[in-house]
């Protein structure tokens, strides 16, 4: 019962989280910033706007991206198989990438290209993370992982690698080249408008839920540790966002793939032999 309520209000929680993050970011930049409910005000405004459909597939793929992401979040909350979750999440990214390729806009194409490259960089880390959880807990089921104790110590290197994935998914500096507001004007988002953009906007909020729920898996059954991890990583990600510029796709892939893969493989090898 509680689970289904959580699933239904997941986008709302995501929106609040996003709004809170905007407040925090504004404070970090020493300015007043928007109110907490700004994402929802934006939402109402977007609903009022006239919606253009560039082509039906583009719009449908955008909506599918949102729905799949919601299902992903639902699976995590229900404690389903972690591998399913990760591949389903990949599917939702693929929907977005296809949507980007289905229109004529150059920015959208470049955005899709970058999104694809970014998926290439972070997906191996997510999969290795799942493998790591399996090796520690003996199961891919999230429910089982949640029942076991905290695995952050034995999966510490993977945790570090996962920290690099978070800015990519949440579009934060230094790894926000996929969105790159100033270069490609939001990339894949550019051709969405009105209520259809709203789906993308809500998908962004769900992305927050997804990322932080996965993060809390590292804490296992220790809820306090989970909350501590969430607060710490939330602050860290925003602080790094406020201390770095956006780096190029080339560097992003070198760093995330090179460093992340190394960290992940070291951790897995360690788990297998120690």
């Amino acid at each position: 019962m509680i689970e289904s309520i959580f699933i239904i209000i997941a986008p709302i929680i995501g929106g609040l989280l996003y709004g809170f993050e905007r407040v925090v970011r504004a404070r970090m930049q020493n300015r007043q910033g928007p109110p907490l409910l700004q994402p929802f005000y934006d939402m109402f405004k977007l609903i009022d706007k006239q919606a253009f459909i560039v082509n039906p597939y583009h719009t449908i793929l955008g909506v599918m991206h949102f729905i799949t992401l919601w299902i992903v979040v639902a699976f995590i909350i229900m404690g389903q198989n972690l591998l399913y979750v990760i591949f389903l999440h990949l599917l939702s990214s693929i929907f977005l990438i296809l949507a980007g390729f289905s229109v004529k806009s150059v920015y959208s194409h470049i955005g899709s290209n970058r999104e694809l490259l970014a998926a290439l960089a972070y997906e191996p880390i997510l999969i290795m993370m799942a493998v790591g959880f399996f090796m520690v807990n003996g199961s891919f089921d999230i429910a089982v992982i949640r029942e076991h104790g905290a695995s952050i110590v034995s999966l510490f290197l993977l945790f570090l690698a996962y920290l690099m994935v978070i800015p990519i998914k949440l579009k934060k500096s230094p790894f926000d080249a996929t969105e790159a507001h100033q270069e490609i004007v939001g990339g894949v988002e550019i051709e969405f408008s009105g209520i259809f953009f709203e789906f993308l906007y809500m998908a962004k909020w769900l992305e927050y839920i997804f990322v932080y729920l996965l993060l809390m898996l590292f804490a296992g059954d220790n809820i306090l540790l989970g909350i501590g991890l969430f607060i710490g990583v939330f602050l860290l990600v925003n602080l790094v966002d406020n201390a770095t510029a956006r780096i190029k796709m080339k560097h992003l892939i070198t760093i995330v793939l090179g460093l992340g893969l190394t960290l992940g493989i070291c951790n897995l090898i360690g788990l297998a032999y120690v």
Binding site: R27, M28, L239, V240
Partner: peptide, 13 residues
């Protein structure tokens, strides 16, 4: 900048 962003959290905007 990292430290500055952190200390700004506790300053008046």
């Amino acid at each position: 900048s990292f430290a500055k962003a952190f200390t700004n959290l506790f300053k008046k905007p």
